Structure formats: C-alpha cells, structure tokens
Amino acid sequence: MEHHHGQTERHQGWKTSRSTDLIFRGITAACAGLVLVVMAGIFVSLVWNSLPSIRHSGISFLFSKAWDPVSNEFGALSSIYGTLMSTAIAMLLAVPLSMVIALFLVELAPPKISYVVGSAIELLAAVPSIIYGMWGLFVFAPFMADNVQPLLSKYLGWLPLFQGPEMGIGMMTAGIILALMILPFVSTVMRDVFAMVPDVMKEAGYGMGATTWEVTKDVTIRYGIQGMIGACLLGLGRAIGETMAVTFVIGNSSDIFISLFEAGNSIASRLANEFAEASDPMYMSALMELGLVLFLMTFGLQVVTQLWLKRVKRKMGGDLL
C-alpha cells in the first residue's frame, strides 16, 4: 500500500514538473515570437508608409543625392553615404581601442585598477547621447578646428580625405563622437568575454613556454572571437542608428564629399532634423522610406556578419569557440 502511495506521489510530481516545463517553454517561445512580430510590424509599417515615395521615385531614390521638398525631389544617397562613413570611422577607432582596453583590464591590470577603470568605462555608457552631442558641438568641434584639423591638413593635406574647410564639424568629428559613444559597450562586452576564458587553457599555454602576447593572441582571442564579434555588432547597431549626437556635429549637408572635414548627413540625423516639419504627404513618405532604408541596412549588416561568423568558426575550429 505504501509502495503504491509512493508511486502515486512520484507520478503526480512528474506530471507537475512536466506541466511546469511546458508552461516555461510556452512563455519563452511566446517572448521569442514577440520579437519577430514586433520586427515584422515595424517593417510592414515602414513599407506601407513609404509606398507613395517608392511609386514616385522608384529605385532612383537610392542613387540620387537630390533633396528638395519644395519640388518633391528626394534621394537617399548622401544620407546613406554619411551613415556608412561615420559608422566606419567609429568602428575603425572604437574596436581596436576597446580590444586593447579589455585585454589590459583582464590580462595585465591589477584587480583594484581593473575594477576602477572598468567601472569608469561602464559609467560612460550611461551618459545620454544628447550630452555627447552638446559636448561635441561646444567643446570637441572647436578643439578639432583649432588643433587636430590644421595638424592633419599640414602633414596629410595631400590626401583628399584631409582637405577642405577646417570648421570642426563634419564627418570626422561625427565619427569620433560615435567612437566615444560605442567604446563603453564594446569594451565592456569584450572584457567579460575575455574574463570567461578558462584559466586552465591559459595556464597550459604558459606551461608550454608561450609569452603573454602569444597566450593572448592564440588562446584568449581565439577562444573569445565569437563574443568579440557580438560586441562589435552591439557597437555597430548603436553607431549606425545614433541620432542626436551625430545631428549636432555632422553639419547637415546633402552633398557628398571625399574629405572628412566636410559636412554631411546621416539617415538618422536627417530624420531628426526634418521629421517634425514634414507636412506634405510625399515629404513624410520620403522620410519614412529613409527609415526603411536604415532598417534594411541594419538587417543586411547583421546577416552578412552572421555568415562571416560561421565562416570564422569553421576556419578556427569549434573546439575553441
């Protein structure tokens, strides 16, 4: 009798546990599905509101730099160029610097210094973007105009990238401000990734006579490559869609210049500058199509990066990832 009673209790416990698992699985699946629904809703909304502009301009919208709301001439080329250029500058500056900072904090710095510096970097992530923009306009842009741009023009002025008016605002300033904004996110994630590398793997490297640099290069970085790429994606997503900080310092020009000293515009800055004053339906639709282009650019970059990540994992070996 007691044996039968024990079996009944175990059976009920198993049923309860199974029901809990099913509920948990359903909740997690619903949350994951909600993300897809929201993304699909954003995409459909952007496409629907962009239809008048798509019918009006067609594919030429992507290859024209004209932007004249009075005559209903709209083109996204200058905004796409500004978005990609400012983001590229930010990533070229922020990613190597973030990697060096993360490696220093994990591999070289004493624990107390690592804690203090790491906390200070994390605090930078809490600074609102509009503060970066105001600081960039009133402090950093004059510094660029008075010191950095004249120096670059003097020694590298023979390159088209460093020719043009030394105003302080422009593509270079916007890229540097973006780099400062994404650096806390990228470096913090990279630091956590490097900290998760098993000590036994590094100790094995040291035991075989490897130097600190060799262990860092061949063990730490190889083991954490997937997390490093994730950190770069996080920074890329922040940089490519940043609005207020870029709006303050990029200059809002519809022309395309090779020089980094010249003013430009990004998709996000154009939307921030002009969305409130867009009263004409076609004008509004063109801005919505700009938003659609930004959405598709971000999605495309994510897809390309994931494909590249799979290639890296196959090349470096799944045992280190």
Rank of each mutant, 00 (worst) to 15 (best):
W14Y: 13
K15A: 15
K15T: 15
K15Y: 15
K15M: 15
S17L: 12
R18N: 13
R18C: 12
R18S: 14
R18H: 14
S19K: 13
D21G: 15
F24N: 07
F24K: 08
F24I: 08
G26A: 07
I27P: 04
I27W: 07
I27V: 11
T28G: 01
T28P: 00
A29P: 14
A30L: 08
C31T: 14
A32Y: 05
A32G: 08
G33A: 06
L34F: 15
V35R: 10
L36C: 12
L36Q: 10
V37T: 15
V37K: 12
V37Y: 14
V37C: 15
F43Q: 02
F43R: 02
F43M: 04
S45I: 00
L46M: 00
V47G: 00
W48C: 05
N49D: 08
S50Q: 04
L51H: 01
P52R: 02
S53K: 03
I54R: 11
I54A: 12
R55M: 08
H56Y: 13
S57W: 01
G58L: 11
I59C: 14
I59F: 15
S60K: 10
F61R: 02
L62F: 13
L62H: 11
S64V: 02
S64W: 01
S64D: 02
K65I: 01
W67M: 02
W67D: 03
D68G: 08
V70F: 11
S71P: 07
N72P: 00
E73Q: 15
E73F: 11
G75I: 03
A76T: 07
A76L: 04
L77F: 12
L77Y: 12
L77P: 09
L77D: 05
L77M: 08
S78G: 12
S78F: 13
I80N: 04
Y81S: 13
Y81K: 10
Y81L: 06
T83V: 14
L84V: 14
M85E: 09
M85P: 08
S86D: 02
S86R: 01
T87P: 13
T87E: 10
T87K: 11
A88M: 01
A88N: 02
I89V: 09
A90R: 06
M91G: 05
L92V: 11
A94E: 00
V95P: 01
V95M: 00
V95R: 00
V95N: 00
P96H: 02
P96A: 01
S98K: 02
M99I: 04
V100A: 08
I101N: 00
L103R: 02
L103S: 05
F104Q: 13
V106T: 15
V106R: 07
L108V: 06
L108K: 03
L108P: 06
L108T: 06
A109V: 05
A109H: 03
P110E: 09
P111Q: 09
I113E: 06
I113G: 12
S114C: 09
V117Q: 03
V117I: 07
G118T: 09
G118K: 03
S119H: 07
S119K: 07
S119M: 04
A120H: 05
A120L: 10
I121G: 07
E122T: 14
E122L: 08
L124G: 15
A125P: 04
V127R: 10
P128Q: 11
P128I: 12
